[in-house]
Computed example of a mutant assay.
Amino acid sequence: MNHDDNEPHVHSFWRRPAGMALATAALIAGFYMLREHWGHVLGYWPYLLLLACPLMHLMHGHGHGGHGRHPHPPGRTQDDKQ
């Protein structure tokens, strides 16, 4: 990657002091929000876990890795596997 020495290096928002302060405040607020509402959150964990299963299958694409789609070495068939 070629960078000109004349161009100033622009940091992303999250690397700037304002971005770091915002991220820190969000983490602290999230921590206290979770502590105050832990009873409510804990009641939803089983449903969130059940919802995660189909979402993971959708996000990973072809189900269980595409059974039978892997190429076989020449001269060997699936019936030869034991």
Score class of each variant (00 low, 15 high):
13 F>S: 05
38 W>P: 03
37 H>D: 13
59 M>H: 08
11 H>F: 07
46 P>V: 06
60 H>A: 00
18 A>W: 05
21 A>L: 04
32 Y>S: 09
77 T>M: 08
18 A>C: 08
74 P>M: 05
37 H>F: 14
10 V>E: 03
12 S>P: 05
40 H>P: 01
67 H>A: 10
58 L>S: 05
32 Y>H: 14
43 G>P: 05
75 G>M: 02
54 P>G: 08
34 L>K: 05
18 A>T: 13
38 W>V: 12
10 V>F: 02
72 H>K: 06
65 G>D: 02
18 A>N: 07
68 G>E: 04
41 V>P: 03
13 F>D: 11
41 V>T: 10
21 A>Q: 02
14 W>V: 12
24 T>D: 11
57 H>N: 05
13 F>L: 00
29 A>Q: 11
62 H>F: 10
44 Y>T: 06
52 A>F: 04
36 E>L: 03
24 T>H: 10
67 H>F: 11
47 Y>F: 09
76 R>L: 01
11 H>K: 14
39 G>V: 15
65 G>E: 01
66 G>I: 00
73 P>H: 01
10 V>G: 04
32 Y>F: 14
48 L>M: 12
53 C>T: 04
30 G>W: 00
14 W>A: 15
71 P>N: 02
61 G>R: 02
73 P>I: 03
40 H>V: 03
44 Y>N: 14
71 P>Q: 00
11 H>N: 15
55 L>Q: 02
14 W>F: 09
51 L>D: 07
77 T>V: 05
21 A>G: 10
31 F>L: 03
72 H>G: 08
33 M>Y: 14
49 L>Y: 12
12 S>H: 15
51 L>A: 12
63 G>W: 02
12 S>K: 13
11 H>Q: 11
23 A>F: 09
34 L>F: 08
65 G>W: 03
34 L>Y: 10
61 G>W: 02
37 H>C: 11
30 G>N: 11
26 A>G: 15
34 L>M: 10
27 L>W: 04
30 G>M: 01
24 T>R: 06
25 A>G: 13
21 A>D: 03
12 S>W: 04
11 H>P: 01
24 T>A: 15
36 E>F: 02
41 V>G: 13
50 L>C: 03
21 A>F: 04
78 Q>L: 12
14 W>I: 15
22 L>E: 10
76 R>M: 06
64 H>T: 06
9 H>W: 10
28 I>T: 14
70 H>F: 05
35 R>C: 15
30 G>I: 00
55 L>F: 02
24 T>S: 08
61 G>D: 01
70 H>E: 01
34 L>E: 07
32 Y>Q: 12
48 L>W: 14
32 Y>L: 11
77 T>K: 08
36 E>Y: 04
73 P>T: 06
50 L>Y: 01
10 V>W: 01
70 H>D: 01
26 A>T: 13
19 G>M: 01
16 R>G: 06
44 Y>Q: 09
22 L>R: 11
61 G>L: 00
61 G>I: 00
73 P>C: 07
48 L>N: 14
47 Y>R: 09
